[in-house]
Nucleic acid binder design. Sequence first.
DNA 1: TCAATAAATGCACTTCCATTGCATTGCCCT
DNA 2: AGGGCAATGCAATGGAAGTGCATTTATTGA
Lengths: 138, 138
Amino acid sequence: MIASDKFLESKGIRPTAMRLLVFQHLAKSKVATTLSDIENAFAKADRTTLFRTLKTFEQKRVVHQIDDGSGIMKYALCEEGCNCELERDLHLHFHCTNCGETICLTEQKIPHINLPDGFVAEDANLVLKGICDKCSGQ
Amino acid sequence: MIASDKFLESKGIRPTAMRLLVFQHLAKSKVATTLSDIENAFAKADRTTLFRTLKTFEQKRVVHQIDDGSGIMKYALCEEGCNCELERDLHLHFHCTNCGETICLTEQKIPHINLPDGFVAEDANLVLKGICDKCSGQ
DNA sequence: TCAATAAATGCACTTCCATTGCATTGCCCT
DNA sequence: AGGGCAATGCAATGGAAGTGCATTTATTGA
């Protein structure tokens, strides 16, 4: 694993202190994270800065945004082998209705769908809702 | 096709004038509809009433809510053969990034996904984004 | 090194939509 | 008719995304 600052630089992102902290916070987290989560983790940080940091990360394909239907956007780091740069990495997400957490199931890809004539798909978002492994007692 | 008021009654919904209008508006529309769409269609109507009408419809399984990632909730009538009462009708939705419309592809079902141990899925939401048939020029 | 320039940050504010509280109206049933 | 509950309308709240602008911090080039 390379150092965070080198990694960000390799993505074309200037590795400021704030950005390194946000990046490392995302790296530690196993679940998708909301803006408010990050805001609470660093009491000193300003919402806007965090917001823009995430937007920058998203643009540079360091994180992807997840809309799990909870009404709040969540963010998660792209995987090592994530081919975000070429095409969207179409793994699915699992939203636990018990604990509210959203998990990237990077192993599970979205199956190919045959669309009616004239429809051209460019992106896909599949969110399963239910009970996660922790909450189901396993 | 049975009359709207009989239909609503059969679903346990009192068929008020407002509700009949909303129902018929949804029935006419081929695409998923936002609260604002309906609000604009009936200038006389109050947002709140429409909002609660939709919530009632949703609860009684007359409409389903669609979160297509546009940030605005949309609603569409459940199909004739929709088995919403027993389990969620897991068809997918197509969101056109050109015209902004969201279409229920009721023929296309969400494929079964094998989840890791401990995960129990109860609901699924699959939204494809791209260009719809009208916008692609077919 | 120092000034000029560009990028990042912080604060205040706006906007948009979902949602709720409460008073009022209208409908149904006895 | 009238009691009671459901539906409606108005006003207000709340939460999250997003924007404008001034300030600070970093980078670059003389």
